[in-house]
Design a protein around this nucleic acid. Sequence first.
DNA 1: CTGAAAGCGCTTACAG
DNA 2: CTGAAAGCGCTTACAG
Lengths: 348, 348
Amino acid sequence: MKKASIKDIAKQIGVSATTVSIVLNGQGKERKISDRIIAEISKVADQLNYRPNQFAKGLRTGKTHTLGLIVDDISNFFFGHLARVVEEEANKLGYTVMFCSSENNEGKARNALGSLLEKQMDGLIIAPTSGMLPEIEKLGKEKKPLVLIDRYFPHVPGSYVTIDNFKGAYDSVAHLVKQGYRSIALVTNETSQLQLGDRLEGYTAALTKHKLSFQPRLVKQIPFGSTEQKTIKEIESFVKAHPSIDAILFTSNNIGIPGLESLRNLRKQVPADIAIVCFDDNDLFRLASPGITVVSQPIKAIGKKALDILLTQIEGKQTGPTHVVLKPNLVVRDSTPGKSWFKTFPVV
Amino acid sequence: MKKASIKDIAKQIGVSATTVSIVLNGQGKERKISDRIIAEISKVADQLNYRPNQFAKGLRTGKTHTLGLIVDDISNFFFGHLARVVEEEANKLGYTVMFCSSENNEGKARNALGSLLEKQMDGLIIAPTSGMLPEIEKLGKEKKPLVLIDRYFPHVPGSYVTIDNFKGAYDSVAHLVKQGYRSIALVTNETSQLQLGDRLEGYTAALTKHKLSFQPRLVKQIPFGSTEQKTIKEIESFVKAHPSIDAILFTSNNIGIPGLESLRNLRKQVPADIAIVCFDDNDLFRLASPGITVVSQPIKAIGKKALDILLTQIEGKQTGPTHVVLKPNLVVRDSTPGKSWFKTFPVV
DNA sequence: CTGAAAGCGCTTACAG
DNA sequence: CTGAAAGCGCTTACAG
């Protein structure tokens, strides 16, 4: 059984393709096609299991009703959930979305972008890698509907949705200081990526503000693309090398989750030996005991907002770039109980 | 700057669209186009930032090099990681993939399928909902390249990749019995879905085999689509209503993760009060203390195998339906220590 | 060595 | 009330 086309329907009824197209697009009444023909077309379309070819349609109309989303890793909690809300909202509006994972790898990111562009996406939501700068600039010049998420390029015009990363880190450190921790380390991926750079700045600013000196040796950077095993090992040696550390701020799940394993391998107790704060919430952090204190991002709001802005652009109502910076939320749990806690409940 | 087409390139050089098409498809040498023209076409294509319109290409050739994947929920650990390996493998082979979440909701599933079909996917990988039966049958008759994952329809011909769900449940229960548990409950979603039905059968078979009577009241079914809060509440009342329960087998993450919260709300200790086994591994189960014993699925193998089969079909080398049933892996952790454990390390 | 022409499945002025 | 014709951006026999 071959796929039915509009012509097949037309032929079978003895009517023109034009008429079929009009009826199938719901303009039958409006264009005053006779009720008999409308009914017949609908019936035959059903029988033949007709499905419009969106390619042909898109070729003709220039709209594909498909959006592209490039994230670091779709299997990651933050991006997986973000993808989910983008998909859900987009579906409600009649769009479908195509996801790609960049793995923070320039080559993959470029390929993903290229293929989404060739597939004529109506618009793009991108968590860009650093190397994407030229492509993003080019897209801006071509007026391609586009919104960046999670990070952006400060000097490139264009819309984006992020959180206040500086504040997220600042608040975390302030919280740790208040709880009595004094030797606070930062473990992060490459801080060349804007949001991680901002988190580093928030960290140092909070230290300074609280009269704790910023010590570069307490900042550990782990390159993107390191395997999980390698990350675990690196964090282990880092922690071993700095026994003074009493608290760690991890700047993302893909650092913080291996980080927990490192601590376990080292038989360091959380929070008795080391307190923990991590960016981005997930099931593990929420339900583990101890629960992990996190800087939680408003995932739903980020996804919805990004989609909103993108659709405004697609509909041509654009009025210059929109910048949205949402507030992160410090969720305090048992991994940062405060040093006084240990006096009340001494660890055996 | 408007998007450049093949004609724009042709016009600028004063050559035909045919020639440009040939060269851009790398058949320049073969078709003996002069080196000068080849060079010039490549140069201009670059300058104009030419990107072939895959729609037009697909319309003409009938191939889109795009695959569709329908899963329950892309933000779920199992399906997120599955999506990731399918994406990765597909990319290597020059395909991109379009994901949709069905939420185990018939309406959404149907919409997702419809839209993937309209978008002319070359092939489909689907974790089907029960109501999809007629559509799946129809696709089979149309010879659409298709492979089902996670579950299938026993009497519908077609390829699928699953694990041995019966064995997964059977082994879990056998393990629990060996550890000394005697009142083992099953908490699951609707068992009308094949893989869950198989898990229920494995559970009852193992009980019977070990001379423990199967007690229907110890099986709790929670409908798909229940909110997380509702699921938590339902499991709470279930556990409260059956104080004899000393172990629970959860048949999936979206039951087991809320299940952990229920137990925590009830102040039930794992494993001191209740032992736990859950289908599908994830970060939480692996890193929580106690670590949760799981039936782990070989996610990579499932994804790769499904893609393999799909591509064979797409390339027309099909030789009848292929059925792959992979072995699950029982990963024993601290949530099922065995009752003797408590004698050695009494719980305070 | 290169090009004219047809066609993939649609939509859209335009005409009657 | 309905249809013929052109065209979206490509590829592919076919011809010369």
